[in-house]
Design a protein around this nucleic acid. Structure first.
Length: 463
RNA sequence: UCCCCUGUAGCUCAACGGUAGAGCGAGCGGCUGUUAACCGCUAGGUUGUAGGUUCGAAUCCUACCGGGGGAGCCA
């Protein structure tokens, strides 16, 4: 008999039908009167299926004790109306088979709440909990929504490189990638000879797919990349990972305003998709994790993001009368406390800050006519902060070259990137969205380390 | 990287210079169409590591290691 998913049984199966399920025991309640309740979860949804096993079922007396929390089972039985509270239907077991035992004395997950700190230490088992099952399903829905959104609007999905030899963002923040025998080289105390390395020169893991995406956007039209990125920054916060997933659309023939429009519709589209496809999981997050989550998400789907030029944002902060740790001064970047004030207290909703001072932004952002600002934009959301960073790209060869030099970069290293301006240059724009920060926003989870299956942070790569 | 907090039973915590406790979980028993089930009993700890102060250290001091929060950097 073919296994059915519990989500399907709970929703669609009618009383009287027979079904087979496979999954893991969440909890068992025995009655000495001659039957037991066993709750089975198979990950297909938040809810468990309650299975009633009568004492006359084969193997009851010998094997019922093996149905401990965490044990894996296959059960076939008849679906029935449930006389109890809490579920539409339940299963009356015809037979059950224990596939894998889980020693109750040593199995780390208990029938009670665990701290997220503890669960991080058992990252290989935490997907078996309600919270991490829900996060995994929401993350999956988000990934699906991302591809669906871009497919619908005719974007090309481009798979960009993970290993790069361009030192785009400065070597300090990149993970070096080498096949040299470093231990032996250290013993020999000789000069490093990069020509002996795999690529014949230093290579690193990518920190962004943007530059490569631009080559496709300026050839084939709207495109996007979606994959892991790596930052070797020693960041120890609730919103930073050394390895995280980023969505980076890049679109030719649009300006910053249209880029903001795209970013807004993109976030709205993904959030709507999750709300409709993960209703049970979202209800769980709203009840158990953060009771403002649904309100915030509905706000996103129903209201436009407020767009505020950087200069105006600075003015709002200066006029707020708030005491800030960091000074408010035109030319300084917005600090976390400033972003939080704007999104959580002043506007109380997502905002887009744009036209930042050129001195605090990278070389590839298009310089405005005022000469002192660039067409950059950040989407800031309550609680999480910056969820998207993007810009219109500098399409003028002379300005771009000058900006590289201004930023201390050698234009020669970016010859292929400059070729995109040298031959048939076009105005274009794009942005990057951190997937895990989106998951933080959507689920209400406080720590980004709980928003990715296996978190990579400084001094931590246990799984 | 900087600042603050923290490390005690499987988990969550108490004990605040004088022999280490509770709740939950687990084991056993009882009860029950139960659903965070309930009731009783039992087992379980060189107090992160290494030094130091003291008659005496989980408790005070130092270093190291781990965890958390905040900041910077950013997505």
């Amino acid at each position: 008999m073919i296994r059915q998913h519990i989500a399907d049984i709970l929703q669609n199966t009618q009383p009287g039908e027979t079904a087979t399920i496979c999954g893991w025991v969440r909890t068992r309640r025995d009655s000495k009167q001659g039957f037991s309740f066993v709750e089975i979860n198979d990950g297909s949804c938040m809810k468990n299926l309650q299975v009633v096993i009568d004492a006359d079922v084969e193997g009851y007396h010998e094997h019922l004790k093996d149905l401990t929390t965490g044990a894996s089972v296959r059960i076939t039985g008849e679906v029935k109306d449930s006389p109890g509270q809490g579920q539409r239907v339940e299963m009356q077991a015809g037979n059950f088979e224990v596939l894998g035992l889980a020693d109750a004395e040593t199995y780390p997950l208990q029938k009670k709440r665990h701290s997220f700190e503890f669960l991080r230490e058992i990252a290989h088992l935490r997907p078996r909990t309600n919270t991490f099952g829900a996060i995994a399903r929401v993350r999956n829905a988000a990934a699906h929504a991302i591809h669906t959104f871009f497919f619908f609007f005719g974007f090309l999905y481009v798979q960009t490189i993970f290993i790069t030899c361009s030192e785009c963002e400065g070597g300090g923040s990149m993970f070096q990638d080498t096949t040299l025998d470093l231990a032996r080289l250290a013993e020999m105390k000789t000069q490093l000879d990069w020509s002996q390395d795999f690529f014949g020169k230093p290579a690193s893991l990518t920190v962004s797919g943007q530059l490569e995406a631009e080559t496709f956007a300026t050839s084939l039209g709207p495109c996007y990349t979606f994959g892991p990125t790596f930052r070797a920054e020693n960041s120890n916060t609730t919103r930073h990972l050394a390895e995280f997933w980023m969505v980076e659309p890049e679109v030719p023939f649009i300006d910053l305003q249209e880029n903001m429009q795209l970013a807004e519709e993109f976030v709205r589209g993904v959030v709507s998709h999750i709300l409709t496809h993960c209703a049970d999981d979202m209800e769980f997050f709203n009840q158990r994790i953060d009771n403002t989550v649904l309100e915030v998400l509905h706000n996103i789907t129903q209201h436009d993001f407020i767009r505020v030029p950087y200069t105006e944002a600075i003015q709002i902060l200066a006029d707020s009368g708030q005491e800030f740790e960091y000074p408010i001064e035109w030319g300084r970047d917005l600090q976390s406390e400033h972003e939080r004030f704007l999104t959580e207290q002043h506007f109380k909703q997502p905002i887009i800050v744009y036209d930042y001072p050129r001195s605090i932004k990278p070389f590839y952002m298009r310089v405005n006519d005022d000469g002192r600002t660039v067409r950059a934009m950040d989407v800031l959301v309550p609680r999480v902060g910056e969820i998207i960073g993007g810009s219109q790209r500098e399409e003028r060869l002379d300005v771009l070259t000058a900006r590289m030099e201004e930023c201390g970069l050698n234009p020669g290293d970016y010859w292929w990137y400059l070729d995109l301006r040298r031959y048939g240059t076009v105005p274009h724009a794009g942005f990057g969205l951190g997937l895990e920060r989106l998951i933080q926003l959507v689920t209400g989870m406080v720590n980004i380390r709980d928003c990715i299956p296996f978190a990579r942070t400084p001094k931590n790569a246990a799984f």
